[in-house]
Nucleic acid binder design. Structure first.
Ligand SMILES: [Mn+2]
Ligand SMILES: [Mn+2]
Ligand SMILES: [Zn+2]
Ligand SMILES: [Zn+2]
Lengths: 138, 138
DNA sequence: CTCTAAATAGAAATCATTTCTATTTATACT
DNA sequence: AGTATAAATAGAAATGATTTCTATTTAGAG
């Protein structure tokens, strides 16, 4: 938790009750949540909290690498804690409980080479979404 | 083109000028387009065309495997022609011209095994978005 | 040609997300 | 500790992509 607050400071973002609460919700929950989910949990802790504030905080936490943003099946915003912001990796999401696991294994280079050779193209980025059932849910 | 129309018939969808025009736009263009892009092109060919009609046709063509749906950087709907609806494969999108290449190479099994072993989970699906520059644009 | 279910246009609704603005607050500096 | 100030926030409002609704038109079967 301390390192998250330091990250905020390093990025000139003030340490506010709302920001601390959002981080804490992700830390103690460990799953993938949308702005409205987070909003619901925040309302239980704080006297007042606006939905635009939640959207803004989530976006800021994404910008400084604390959260990763993804898009749900129904094309809405989702966020989850990312503990490896500087390492290339992907995320496995449980379809039942939305728990996230960080996947530090990536063998995309093979695909990349295939594409660059076959189409004479330049591969610049890849994004992988992996879904299934976690050990608890399967 | 004939096979696309047969596909419509096979799925009890009538062959209408609007549907033919949408298919033709994708066939003659070969890139990734959103509903509004398609709408713009349709307006040049047809006297009247409604945007909801475009959304509906694109969704239907996706359902019967003629198009694949994806989500753009700014979280909007995009569609592109898919000539391999029955084969597992991915798509490479050119960041400059939106051209799509079908990538029939997938080595995801390695990642899948890694996850299932490390997290004792069950991997059920994976989705890969590959971006870069095509041979023309690089 | 006639009939009927499917398709369409256009208007309206939906709803996640963003913008705006007045007020409050964290924090750097006395 | 007290003050100043830019940053953060609440709440209301706007936005805009997408969907729904409904009266009208049309494709295709018989
Ligand atoms: Mn991560
Ligand atoms: Mn394809
Ligand atoms: Zn990777
Ligand atoms: Zn694959």
């Amino acid at each position: 938790m301390e390192s998250y607050l330091q990250n905020l400071k390093d990025n000139c973002l003030k340490i506010t009750p709302r920001r601390k609460a959002v981080i804490d919700i992700f830390v103690s929950n460990g799953s993938r949540m949308g702005p409205y989910d987070v909003y619901g949990k925040l309302k239980k802790r704080l006297s007042t909290i606006g939905l635009p504030t939640v959207y803004r905080i989530l976006s800021e936490l994404k910008d400084i690498g604390i959260l990763v943003q993804s898009i749900s099946e129904d094309r809405q915003l989702r966020y989850s804690l990312c503990t490896l912001p500087d390492v290339h990796h992907h995320h496995f999401t449980c379809r039942k409980c939305s728990k996230i696991e960080e996947v530090e294994f990536c063998n995309f280079k093979g695909v990349s080479r295939f594409i660059e050779k076959k189409f004479n193209a330049k591969v610049e980025a890849h994004q992988v979404q992996i879904e299934g059932l976690c050990s608890e849910c399967k």
